[in-house]
Amino acid sequence: MTLLKTKLLKIAKSGVFQDFTPQQLSETREEILSLGTDGLTTVEVYTLLELQFYISLLTNHDVEAKACLDRLVDQFDTEKSQRIKLLQSLYLEAVAGDEKKATDILCRDPDEMNLSRRLTSFSRKRANGSESFINNLIFYLDLNPSDLKSWGELGSQYSKVGNYEKSVYCYKEILLREPFAYNIFYLVGLEYYHWFLQADLNNNNKDKKDKVLEAVELLSQARNHFLRSIEISESYKKGWEGVYAVSNVKEFNDRIGGKWGQVKEVKKFLADGDKLRELSKSKIESI
């Protein structure tokens, strides 16, 4: 009972339910329903109610979501609470499909930063989705330069449109705040890897030395970031897979190995790659 309560409160606090699979969602929903309200403080009751609202929206239980929302609105002042406005707007967007009303709720007070952020995300749906979304995110980040969620969002948007350099910059902004976020190190590595693939694909003159060195530099950046992610969390399988992938780009390795093999940087890169390939292979197999 207490354990279940603690678990649910943790889920509510961390927002981890956004990444749940449908099965996990429905299990969590069952758990909330089975918990009841006995022995909870007022704050805990309403935190769980909020969680129940999100989960019922995600699992298509519209009526239940409406019931939760009504209970919250009954209890709290809708004019003063950002959190309630956020829920109302979510409900309007998700169930009633009324985008205009949903955005109206968010516009009332410029001091409400959380609502501004949500407002930003509405432009995602417009015709030229990514572009205006990126512009809005940049505008929002100018207002609130230390909002990690938005930096992450901007990073993934840039990655979508293929601007990997900027994407790396955004993810690095998260790392400056959370220097041990190994999953972000993995993402940065992934962006560098994509960047390398993009550069290699667009490279018409594959025999120029500076181009080759640039590609090697990108690939070793990718490798370094993957390595950092597994240095922080040794059993992070994705990180090892990344290491394996960057040390196993056969065609590229053969090409540079043939002609540029004696250049200092390339030589070191290839030698490290050989060792890491073996290591990461055995690690992936054992995990």
Partner: peptide, 23 residues
Amino acid sequence: FKKFREQSFLGRVGAFRANNSVL
């Protein structure tokens, strides 16, 4: 929000100063 923005930027600079080793 203007005051918030001022502080927020300062926070970003502070984070850069503390954790620049990830760059």
